[in-house]
Each structure stands twice: as structure tokens, then as C-alpha cells.
């Protein structure tokens, strides 16, 4: 699905990358533990997280992820927004909590690492 469809599915707002919403994303992961993201993520292009600090953006940068969604109405700080802009990473925010955000994306065809 495109990031634009993700936005609609999650009633989300855009913090950075408004010009990149046509990008296609097929796999995602949800985690507040960046250590796990670095250890277990393979090709997932999107990260859903409730963690808000610059290392979230750094982790996505190292993993070649193109989109980060903050759950539960959390908002990135200005230095996180700058870092995301520098690396062409789209930052989104949704009012839904992690479980619901993942479930809504799954129901629209988004999958995790296993593809199941």
C-alpha cells in the first residue's frame, strides 16, 4: 500500500515527507525496542513505535526504512524531524495505540517479516 493509504487507514498526520506519500510499503514491524529492530528486521520498510527519541530515526536510517509511525498520539521532537528530513524518512503519527494501528494495517494487506 502507499503511505497515503496508510495515512487514511490510521487517521494519521504527516510530520515530514509530505512529498513522499506515493511510496509503496508492503512490510512493517512494531517495536519499542530498537535493539530488536536492529537484530531481527530484514526488509521491512516501516516501523511502528511508541518510543520518541533521535535513536528511533537513526535506527530506521541504518535499516533503510522509509517510514516511521508514532502511535498513541506521540509526536517527534524538532531534532528528530530534522534528522528524518535529512534522510528522506517519512514521519507519521496516529491516535491509535500500537495494537490497533498494527491490526488496521494488517487488515489492509500489510505484513510482517514472515509475510503471513
Amino acid at each position: 500500500m502507499t503511505i497515503k493509504e496508510i495515512l487514511e487507514t490510521l487517521d494519521a498526520e504527516v510530520f515530514t515527507g509530505a512529498d513522499l506519500l506515493d511510496r509503496e510499503i508492503h512490510t512493517a514491524c512494531g517495536s519499542d525496542l530498537m535493539s530488536d529492530v536492529l537484530a531481527f528486521v530484514k526488509e521491512q520498510a516501516m516501523l511502528l513505535t511508541g518510543l520518541v527519541n533521535p535513536q528511533v530515526i537513526r535506527t530506521a536510517e541504518m535499516m533503510d526504512m522509509v517510514c516511521i509511525l508514532f502511535v498513541r498520539g506521540k509526536k517527534p521532537t524538532l531534532d528528530m524531524i530534522d534528522l528524518a528530513n535529512e534522510n528522506d524518512i517519512v514521519l507519521l503519527g496516529t491516535p491509535y495505540e500500537m495494537f490497533t494501528a498494527c491490526g488496521r494495517l494488517y487488515s489492509k494487506g500489510m505484513r510482517g517479516r514472515s509475510g503471513k
Binding site: 519499542d32 530498537m34 535493539s35 530488536d36 536492529l38 527519541n53 535513536q55 528511533v56 535506527t59
Partner: peptide
């Protein structure tokens, strides 16, 4: 609290 310290650092570097 910043999302690290899960004991995956060195094993991950090796991997």
C-alpha cells in the same frame, strides 16, 4: 528507556 540495552549489541555486531 531509550530502546537499547536488550543485550543484543555484541551478538548483533557479530551477526
Amino acid at each position: 528507556q531509550l530502546g537499547f540495552g536488550a543485550g543484543m549489541g555484541l551478538p548483533n555486531i557479530k551477526k
